[in-house]
Design a protein around this nucleic acid. Sequence first.
DNA 1: AATTTACGTCAGGCTTATTGACATATTTCA
DNA 2: TGAAATATGTCAATAAGCCTGACGTAAATT
Lengths: 188, 188
Amino acid sequence: MSIASSPRTSPAAFSSLPESGSAGADDTAGRPGNDIVELLFFAYRDFVSDPDRLLTQYGFGRAHHRVLHFVERQPGMTIAEMLDILGITKQSLNPILKDLVEKGYIVQRTGTVDRRQRLLFPTDKGRALSLDLTKPQLGRIARALAGTEPDVRAKVTAFLFAMIDPDDHAHVARLVWTEPATDGHDAE
Amino acid sequence: MSIASSPRTSPAAFSSLPESGSAGADDTAGRPGNDIVELLFFAYRDFVSDPDRLLTQYGFGRAHHRVLHFVERQPGMTIAEMLDILGITKQSLNPILKDLVEKGYIVQRTGTVDRRQRLLFPTDKGRALSLDLTKPQLGRIARALAGTEPDVRAKVTAFLFAMIDPDDHAHVARLVWTEPATDGHDAE
DNA sequence: AATTTACGTCAGGCTTATTGACATATTTCA
DNA sequence: TGAAATATGTCAATAAGCCTGACGTAAATT
């Protein structure tokens, strides 16, 4: 594990922090939300760095992680939907997908209803790797929530959801809060 | 946009999925925090895309934004500290910094106490651009918090802080919750 | 039969990052 | 004072991951 198991700093230190009341003419520092801008940067930086060591061992990058993750979360996903989720082009996706397929983490199947589609499914091997990669991230989240009031998880979740472009809300909600179907579509 | 896939919308069965293979007792879908993993991805994706259009107009990239942002937040920052914050090498930073200096957004000054250091300061022009770039992000945060209970902001802030590597807590706290000094170090 | 859709692929290019090696000015230490 | 460490700059080579544009193919839709 890459995360130090050091004792958690006391959240009590959060009570009286300067949130406004700047010195300058334009209150640059006092803009509400400015701290969240920066915390988001640092939190995300550390968050995505969690699986990096493991990823490097496999010769994969973060893009591979994202693809594998979403395939595992929604087996049978189409290429088009993956592109939409990741916000990249098919030319960018292709080499990454090719890697994952060639190394046996993902299988592509011709769609049954629309034979133009190449549906993506994780193999057992792919599921196992996805699990390993996400583990340190889940650990980080669990530690961040440990000892907090029971409503924090729900409020954080709602906040993050509200941070997403409203146009994508329906899509994201379905992806995030829907069970991966137990289809028998494993390879092997 | 062809986001047409399976219509399974039953958040009921979050308990037992037959997980074949290696990982054993882990229930893949029901892992707590899995939704936060994904929401963090989408929220951050949309969050960083906010300033992109503006950035492109200036011929800058996201790296320029980050550098400018932190210089504005902590005027007089050293190169070493910037490297530490961004987690990159000086070779990566240099061309970006050079851009910003040449175009008049940042000035470098020889340190007074240690003349080896090149302290970084924003110009008025730099501060203005930084403000413009951060504006849509602050707007997004404000919208996400609008109408929520008054404790949400503090709880989200605490959560994000706890998500950061504990080793960096002191450093980040100082950076985030310290006023930019009103030094007369403007370039003119 | 013509068009559209879903996907694959080739080509070329950009930004941001990397490691390694070396140079220079300045501070600190012995 | 001389040696070593520090802060920064720079050149070179490399790579991941993204981009646009263009073209091709199979399958569905009209």
